[in-house]
Write a protein that binds this DNA or RNA. Structure first.
Length: 415
RNA sequence: CGGGGCGUUGUGUAAUGGUAGCGCGCUUGGUUUGGGACCAAGUAGUCCGAGUUCGAGUCUCGGCGCCCCGACCA
């Protein structure tokens, strides 16, 4: 894409009302726009990051048998009444409205009840299991206090996966396979080293649930970790019995601040029982259904990455989720740069071409702010030396490649 | 939901109750051209509504909105 055609622009100015690093950088670079407190629009560059993250998640979900669907944002009252969760006293984040005829509707803050209701149509026999469905969906939550940019908003994108099974062993095995898939996701977005499967409160159905906590100062949780043993415990459940169960003592654990990027939850059979989802087993008798619910905050994950991979000049995207792999900077050498741009495009390399009539300093500063992994500099100086310059945004390392389109394509092809 | 801070051009800020000014941005012209360059001329504003006052950005009341701490986070 040519930058001269991109309708967004960058700004040097820091916004007074936006304190978090993620929102500050993403807004300055033109990735997102703030619509209101806790509500952000995703612009071309930001959307490309979201789509890259979704692609990774989609691959990992499909790999464990997930089938993608999309539920609705408008939800009927009835399905939530069956579990007692329509009440504002029970769920305090509801956005609600009415149809013209007075019928109550809710805006989806979760989809556990609606998807289970929907599944009743299809899951009627033990032969129908297991069933694994997931979606990417905008969740609407009337948070009392939005904060930290895109890390805690009133409208955000979540990937939620639901597993249904009649066989408890298989149900638990799937739960374990989601753990693995989730860690793959966090590894692939670059947060593997600092993301822990964390013991957390389980609620009414199970003793514990598991959260995926990424160590970051921008987070709002505290967890206790032991990196060598790969153990992490949320502060909220840390007591002597948990320590005994895990076989660690408290002085082996370090307290760190973290952000919850994912959560997996075993409902047992309670939820489906509540919603009257029963099926016929082999003996022709009524059987209960196990439900698992598994979430990844897609937009929050983008916020955590933006926070973590940044320096004083701007963001630093990894190749897996960068909006573009290459930022081609033409220092008044548009003709030559255009040839390279076309060659890279033809080879399928994603490239943002800064073809604007601007000073070198402006282009470098913008490129650093936007944070594409590679900056490819085409300038008079380089052309004279019959080469192009390729700078690694993260390391700052500079490499030179001869001024030959196929050589340049090959450089990025091997990446 | 409890507590605190705050709303002035697009953005960041200034203005004893008395002419709304400055930097950045943006527009135009010119100069520059490897790290946010320079010169000149322009552009645009007091969140909304009442009230007090000869006079309100400034004082009072109400509304709307934003940020932070805490609580909450299925």
């Amino acid at each position: 894409m040519k930058q001269s055609q991109l309708f967004t622009k960058t700004t040097k100015d820091a916004l007074k009302d936006e304190v978090s690093v993620n929102a500050q950088l993403l807004i300055r670079a033109g990735f997102i726009n703030k619509e209101m407190a806790g509500v952000y629009a995703y612009l071309p560059l930001g959307l490309r990051v979201i789509e890259k993250i979704k692609k990774i998640i989609r691959e990992e979900m499909d790999a464990i048998g997930g089938q993608e669907i999309i539920m609705s944002s408008l939800q009927p009252k009835g399905v939530w009444e069956s579990t007692g969760r329509w009440s504002d006293e029970v769920v305090d984040v509801w956005f609600k409205s009415k149809l013209k005829n007075g019928t109550d509707v809710g805006f989806g803050w979760s989809h556990e009840e609606p998807i289970t209701e929907m599944m009743k149509r299809f899951l009627t026999s033990y032969r129908d299991f297991p069933a694994y469905a997931y979606q990417f969906q905008t969740k609407l939550r009337n948070e009392l206090r939005a904060k930290s940019g895109i890390m805690r908003g009133r409208e955000f994108v979540m990937k939620d996966l639901y597993s249904y099974d009649v066989d408890e062993t298989r149900h638990l095995a799937f739960y374990e396979s989601v753990k693995g898939a989730y860690m793959n996701v966090f590894r692939r977005v670059g947060l593997g080293d600092i993301t822990y499967i964390t013991f957390a409160a389980g609620g009414a159905f199970t003793k514990y649930s598991h959260e995926f906590q990424t160590i970051t100062e921008a987070g709002e949780d505290y967890i206790y970790v032991n990196k060598e043993k790969g153990i992490a415990v949320n502060e909220e459940v840390l007591d002597d019995s948990v320590l005994t169960e895990l076989g660690v003592s408290k002085n082996e654990l370090t307290k760190v601040k973290s952000a919850e990027v994912g959560n997996i939850f075993n409902f047992g059979t309670a939820k489906c029982d509540d919603m009257n989802l029963f099926v016929t087993d082999k003996q022709g008798k009524q059987a209960s259904v196990y439900l698992g619910s598994y979430g990844i905050g897609v937009t929050r994950l983008m916020g955590v990455v933006a926070e973590h991979f940044a320096d004083e000049r701007g963001m630093i995207w990894s190749e897996e989720i960068a909006p573009f792999a290459v930022h081609l900077l033409s220092l008044n050498q548009n003709e030559k740069a255009e040839e390279i741009y076309n060659a890279l495009n033809k080879a399928g390399v994603e490239v943002l071409f800064d073809d604007r009539d601007a000073n070198a300093g402006v282009k470098f500063a913008d490129a650093d702010l936007m944070g594409m992994p590679y900056q490819l500099v085409v300038s008079e100086k380089n052309i004279r030396d019959n080469r192009v310059e390729i700078k690694n945004r993260k390391s700052g390392a500079v490499e030179y490649v001869s001024l030959d389109n196929s050589e340049i394509v090959r450089y990025f092809g091997k990446k």
